[in-house]
Design a protein around this nucleic acid. Structure first.
Lengths: 111, 111
DNA sequence: TTGACACGACACTGCTTGGTGTCTTATTAT
DNA sequence: ATAATAAGACACCAAGCAGTGTCGTGTCAA
């Protein structure tokens, strides 16, 4: 089956770099969908800021939004994260060997 | 065995967000170690810029540097990437189920 | 010893970004 | 009908960042 790629304006790595946006993803992972104002209460920043973060997540394809009444509900779409998973998998082959030794070197040169 | 955490000034997600820095990691994955000027030739930007990127990678603990003669050689340390791997693993449980349906929704609302 | 090379350290610049506040519109509840 | 709520659309600002160029210093080679 062929899945046409979502027009992904924003780099997934970039979208995920911000801790606020990662928190948003985590919140959306627990529930079906959440409106903006309910997401906002979890943060100290204002509504506009959260909305912007969600816009960025949407650009990266990590989130979908749909209008219901006067509120816009957001829903998680984790599929773009697969890209990151594949990328990091390449480096995971280094985990097992040589890692302890390298870590020791890091400890030693700690300034 | 207890591994003391490297004083990790910089967020790993942040360090990895830049495509140039990801390319640097890939280059260092192939070889033991590489001096700055050899890394620089792979990019269009100047030496100073590459050096700054490496500094950021170092802050995140993704890279080690050691001076040899007049050159400073950089070496990959992929261990901090484990953090990302663990994080993305949480979302990987969504891969298998419901994903095709969600993707279809995305396709439909494509504007 | 002289010159070329590798690099760090700065100072500087344009652009992006993460946040704010305000205004307006649509929707819901009273 | 009116008031309150939810949110988009701006304009705006401070801070950080990615790049540049330059200068000074240590190192290697001829």
């Amino acid at each position: 089956m062929i899945l046409a790629k979502k027009s992904q304006t924003r780099d997934v790595y970039d979208a995920v770099a911000d801790p606020t946006r990662r928190e948003l993803l985590r919140l959306l992972a627990d529930v079906e969908e959440l409106p903006l104002h309910q997401l906002t209460v979890h943060f100290q920043m204002g509504r506009t800021a959260v909305s912007k973060h969600l816009a960025i997540l949407k650009e990266a394809g990590l989130v979908t939004d749909r209008k219901v009444g006067r509120e816009t509900r957001y829903r998680l779409n984790p599929t773009p994260l697969k890209q990151i998973q594949d990328w990091v998998a390449f480096y995971s082959k280094f985990w097992s060997t040589n890692m302890l030794r390298l870590n020791q070197l890091l400890e030693e040169e700690e300034e």
